[in-house]
Design a protein around this nucleic acid. Sequence first.
DNA 1: ACGGCATGTCCAA
DNA 2: TGGACCTGCCGTG
Length: 333
Amino acid sequence: MPEGHSVHRIARQFARNFVGRVVSASSPQGRFAEGAAMIDGRAITAVRAVGKQMFLQFEGDLWLRVHLGMYGAWDFAGEIVIDPTIASANGRMGQTNQRGTELPQVLDEGGENSLTSIGAPRRARVHVRMSEQTTGLPGEDEDAEWPPPVVGQVRLRLLTEVTAADLRGPTACELLSADEVAATIAKLGPDPLVDDVTEGEERFTTVVRRKPTPIGLLLMDQSVVSGIGNVYRAELLFRARLNPHTPGRDVPEEVVRGLWRDWVALLSIGVETGQMMTMDDLSPEDYRRAMASRDDRHWVYHRAGLPCRVCGTEIVVEEVATRKLYWCPSCQR
DNA sequence: ACGGCATGTCCAA
DNA sequence: TGGACCTGCCGTG
């Protein structure tokens, strides 16, 4: 579900609300009961996000690796401090579930809307999980159940005194040693929010320019570059006007570098807004529309059969390694 | 109510 | 290359 931007956003939530605190851990669903028992009662000492994976460090240098896969999600509840770097302008947390719908509206105590305001982080309460709208006013929090009732299949629940994080549907949730974490990360390609962007550009460019593999596959290969998923792949290729089937080594070096730099830019927008906005130069009106509806956010993704926004040619879709790849056969040559 | 689909990855044949 | 796995949402009826 989440591409790299979501994982970085989630990691920032953990940094704000869990790092430095003792947590109680449980596996309501039971499928991570042993692991939960191992970390129960320990303090979380650090969080790292690399590509689509997140690592939580617990006292004793014990690490939890979580990969959400396509369906996984973290739901935060209770009293949370919104990290100002991911607070979107409309006052929502901007977290999204796998359908891209907004997670709960977050109310700060003054009822103000600007969570992006500079200064000390505000306290906010999350009443509702997933896409349901908040119905309660801050005052009603007094009656909110604590800890929140478990809803659905929760693999892992982490609780501080005031905050809950529920993990559901991950493709990976396991405990690792520090060495194992290092080995896992070593296999990943550069992540613009982890690695020096200049070094990242060199690594990415060198690898891509050596491979006969189609660039459309290389962008999804987490050992080549971290965090890009199916949406960003399609959009990056369109923005570069690049044919997805072009072998990596045939893509001009400047174009490869351009892909990396564009990924740096899109990831940063994604982390800040919580949305995969991949169109630019929009009028304020179009921008508003794009932010409001997933259907209006992309150049080609999910637009098979629709006219290309630039040239009018029908966007095509093809299966590439079991994933749908959308592109404009006219713009991308 | 039910089936299809999804921003992902791994593994066996 | 095909299947398995993880879970919830959305369209269709």
